[in-house]
């Protein structure tokens, strides 16, 4: 398993993280955790959770302004685009054509040409339509978008998305909003082994151990939303996730011991008393 960076920890966690940024496209981020902004009941809690998570990149959705309740505010009234790097998504799109339309609207907001591409193929599982995702990616990359593509655990699709020019490929851990954790570690390891672009596991992480186990597979980052927004204490969970992503990354880089189904004593077997 290739380890891209050996890092010096010197017992100081913040040094370790500072020495291990993630590069996506032409940008670099200190945090390997990307968080969403959906489903929070309270905007102050959301902002506190985002800050506690340490995430620099934050996803947002594009929707109609509700004209019957014009006092309702968009997310930009809470989320400062100078403080966080906004990643518009195409959530809710079921065709390549719709995703392209939403992507263009998101870019027209004027912050960047980055995009989380998501084309859903099945309403019950919210699993991606991988064929439509590849189609949309080809068009959007041609238009200059930096596409981070949400996809299934299928390595062939991941390779096609990389070939299409996506700056990151984002396989799911388990279905969106399910909190089931990483149901198939082999799939994400295989995608990580085969692709050169960063692999960010997006969707399905439910709690801190899920995030840690996911990062231990050697992937480059994790994207989550519901795990924070639906926790009893989103700010507390965001703090836990920040540590879990860091712990999983450090454990991966440190290289785990081989697992074996026999016990081997840790203490000397010689020098025992008669």
């Amino acid at each position: 398993m290739a380890k891209e960076a050996k890092i010096e920890t010197r017992g100081n966690e913040s040094d370790a993280v500072a020495a291990d940024p993630i590069r996506i496209g032409d940008r670099e981020f200190e945090s390997r955790l990307i968080v969403g902004t959906g489903k929070y009941s309270d905007n102050d809690v959301m902002m506190n959770a985002i800050r506690a998570s340490g995430a620099e990149m934050v996803t947002v959705a594009v929707r109609r302004v509700d004209l019957d309740r014009t006092k309702e505010e968009g997310i930009l009234h809470h989320l400062d685009p100078d403080e966080f790097f906004l990643l518009p998504n195409t959530a809710g799109c079921y065709t390549a054509e719709d995703a392209i339309r939403y992507a263009r609207l998101g870019r027209a907001a004027g912050f960047s040409d980055w995009l989380k591409l998501e084309v859903i193929g099945d309403e019950a599982t919210l699993l991606p339509d991988t064929q439509a995702t590849i189609e949309a990616a080809l068009v959007l990359v041609e238009e200059g978008f930096k596409v981070m593509a949400y996809t299934s655990g299928d390595v062939v699709t991941a390779l096609r998305l990389e070939d299409a020019g996506c700056v990151a490929v984002m396989p799911l851990a388990s279905p969106i909003g399910s909190g089931l954790g990483l149901v198939n570690p082999y799939f994400v390891r295989e995608i990580k082994r085969r692709c050169e672009v960063p692999i960010i596991v997006d969707a399905g992480v439910g709690t801190a151990s899920d995030a840690c186990i996911t990062m231990e597979q050697g992937v480059d980052g994790v994207l989550m939303n519901t795990a924070l927004a639906a926790a009893d204490d989103p700010v507390g969970m965001a703090h836990a996730m920040r540590l879990a992503v860091r712990a999983g990354r450090l454990a991966y880089l440190a290289g785990r011991m081989p697992a074996r189904e026999i016990a081997i004593p840790s203490s000397p077997t010689r020098g025992l008393l008669d």
Binding site: G38, V62, T226
Partner: peptide, 28 residues
């Protein structure tokens, strides 16, 4: 057609036009 902010003061809304006004909301 998306209207860039540079032109919204110049373009007039006509009878039968379809107008969509969108913004960023919370999403994952």
């Amino acid at each position: 057609e998306i209207l860039s902010r540079d032109v919204i003061a110049d373009v007039r809304v006509e009878e039968g036009d379809q107008v969509e006004v969108v913004h960023f909301v919370g999403g994952g």
